[in-house]
Simulated scan of single mutants.
Amino acid sequence: MDLLLDSADLSAIAHALEHYPIKGVTTNPTMLSTIEGGAVLSHLRRIREMIGEERELHIQVMGCDESIMIKEAHYLVSQLGEKTCIAVPVTECGLKVIKQLTSEGIAVTGTTVFSTMQGILAMLSGARYIAVFYDRMLNLDIDAKRVIKELSGFLWTNTSTTQVLAASFRNISEVTSAYANGAGVCTVRPELLSTGLAMPSISQAVDDFSRDWKSVFGEKTLLEL
């Protein structure tokens, strides 16, 4: 079970690296379109410097045909390292790209997955991750939990190295539901991670323990006893 950060914001990434057990960072075209001055590649290089060579960086190709997407993938990996996962939309064109890139040993995330069949096709084409868009599926009255459960079951049965990567969450309940139904990886926005630790009951429990300790030992720590 792994956790990715869904953000291209440098300050949010820095904060997450310090506090959370993130395996890597996912970006999408919408995030990258907001980068000041359009300096996308230099921004991605900065993210790579921050997360190091051992963590994954997911980036979606934007070409409209197979040859351009493959060239984009080669360029991104050459510039950002082998731990760069190339996100490819799971369409007819995308499936051909996924097969080609995986045959070259490039890690691919089959993205914009809204159905079990899409995920199966991505898995059979060699994708390392199947990016299931949880909240967007709910908005279309698609049973996201069922799709994740079916895909994770197929992957387990076929002993595939592919993992279900759940994305597009509205709240923490959706994240925990995705994990519970078999997602091997979830990518979560920074504000949702913070929300998961912001329950008043957590602060109350910490305060209660602190009060009881101080009533006996004052400001002493365990090092002073």
Results as ranks from 00 to 15, higher is better:
9 D>L: 13
9 D>H: 06
10 L>V: 13
11 S>H: 12
11 S>G: 01
13 I>S: 05
13 I>W: 06
13 I>G: 06
14 A>D: 13
14 A>S: 14
15 H>D: 10
17 L>Y: 02
17 L>V: 04
17 L>T: 09
17 L>G: 02
18 E>G: 10
20 Y>C: 05
20 Y>F: 15
20 Y>M: 06
22 I>C: 04
23 K>W: 00
23 K>G: 00
24 G>A: 08
24 G>Y: 01
25 V>A: 05
26 T>D: 05
26 T>S: 06
27 T>E: 04
29 P>F: 03
32 L>Q: 02
32 L>Y: 04
33 S>F: 10
34 T>M: 12
35 I>D: 09
36 E>I: 10
37 G>P: 12
37 G>S: 07
39 A>E: 14
39 A>R: 13
40 V>L: 15
43 H>R: 04
43 H>L: 04
43 H>N: 12
43 H>A: 00
44 L>D: 05
47 I>F: 03
47 I>K: 00
48 R>P: 02
50 M>R: 06
51 I>W: 00
51 I>N: 00
52 G>L: 01
53 E>R: 15
54 E>V: 06
56 E>K: 11
57 L>P: 11
57 L>G: 07
58 H>E: 05
58 H>N: 12
59 I>L: 02
60 Q>W: 00
61 V>P: 11
61 V>I: 06
62 M>Q: 15
62 M>K: 11
62 M>W: 04
62 M>P: 07
63 G>R: 10
65 D>W: 10
71 K>C: 05
71 K>I: 07
72 E>G: 04
73 A>Q: 08
73 A>G: 13
74 H>R: 14
75 Y>P: 07
76 L>W: 07
76 L>I: 11
77 V>E: 01
77 V>A: 02
79 Q>N: 11
79 Q>S: 01
80 L>C: 06
81 G>K: 10
81 G>W: 04
84 T>N: 13
86 I>E: 01
89 P>L: 07
89 P>I: 03
89 P>R: 07
91 T>E: 00
92 E>P: 13
93 C>M: 09
93 C>F: 00
96 K>M: 11
97 V>W: 02
99 K>E: 13
104 E>K: 08
105 G>N: 01
105 G>D: 08
112 T>Y: 08
113 V>Q: 05
114 F>V: 07
114 F>Q: 02
117 M>D: 06
117 M>Q: 11
118 Q>P: 09
118 Q>S: 05
119 G>N: 11
119 G>H: 04
122 A>Q: 03
122 A>W: 00
123 M>E: 10
123 M>P: 14
123 M>K: 13
123 M>S: 12
124 L>W: 14
126 G>K: 15
128 R>W: 02
129 Y>E: 01
130 I>C: 00
131 A>T: 15
131 A>G: 01
132 V>E: 02
134 Y>W: 08
134 Y>E: 02
135 D>R: 15
137 M>A: 01
138 L>T: 12
139 N>Q: 14
141 D>N: 15
142 I>M: 11
142 I>F: 08
143 D>E: 09
143 D>Y: 08
143 D>H: 12
